[in-house]
């Protein structure tokens, strides 16, 4: 494999990173909304959000990307592959992060909310100043773990024609007929992104274990 081919793989890598970043950042914003709605205390809203989460947790990511890519085109919303997979992965991430953070919010002791209420803090301040800072700390290991899943999940975007790392590998492999070498390198690039995050997640977990002692 020559320099040209390797550079093409790196272009693919760039798009994988960009897609992961967009999906993670937008997924965080949307996921926070989902988590807050899921813990709102209003039965109907909680049930609707639970349904939203269940749909995304209960179907394959690939189906979700297909539905966004082909489904939206069918009802007249034209999107290029980049926008479609970004939307698809964001929705996916929002459901999973929403559920992770729902658990974390509920893991903050009830006394914290009660103390905040007794001090007459309103909902926004209770969440922003008291509950969420503690919930985020609790959720960090699981959140980092999901980010790793999400990075690997972006490889499915190749199926709808978006040229990220996996599809770049596919293209090169078809040109030089060395699939094992090419996909070996592709795999190593994924590993280099994900492994440090996994180690970081484990580190955070240990840190909070000792902190809570």
């Amino acid at each position: 494999m020559g320099r040209e081919e390797f550079l093409f793989l790196l272009t693919g890598l760039k798009w994988t990173v960009a897609l992961s970043a967009v999906a993670f950042v937008c997924g965080c914003v949307a996921g926070l909304m989902v988590a807050l709605l899921r813990t709102s205390g209003v039965a109907i809203i909680e049930r609707l959000t639970a349904g939203y989460i269940a749909v995304f947790q209960g179907t394959p990511l690939l189906m979700q990307l297909f539905v966004v890519y082909y489904g939206l085109a069918l009802i007249g919303i034209q999107m290029d592959a980049w926008a479609a997979v970004s939307v698809g992965l964001t929705l996916h991430a929002s459901a999973f992060l929403g559920e992770i953070w729902r658990g974390s919010i509920e893991a903050v002791p009830r006394g914290q909310t009660e103390a905040a209420k007794a001090l007459s803090l309103g909902y926004v301040s209770r969440m922003k100043d008291v509950v969420l800072p503690q919930a985020i700390r609790i959720s960090l290991p699981a959140t980092v773990g999901f980010l790793v899943q999400l990075i690997k999940g972006t490889s499915l975007a190749s199926i709808v024609g978006f040229t990220e790392l996996t599809r770049a590998g596919n293209i090169i492999s078809n040109q030089i007929f060395q699939p094992l070498t090419v996909f070996g390198i592709v795999g190593a690039l994924y590993f280099l992104m994900c492994c440090p995050l996994t180690i970081y997640g484990a580190h955070l977990e240990r840190k909070f274990l000792t902190a809570s002692r």
Partner: peptide
């Protein structure tokens, strides 16, 4: 004032 203090730990 609560039995369990309920100070904000962060």
């Amino acid at each position: 004032v609560f039995q369990q203090f309920n100070l904000f730990p962060h």
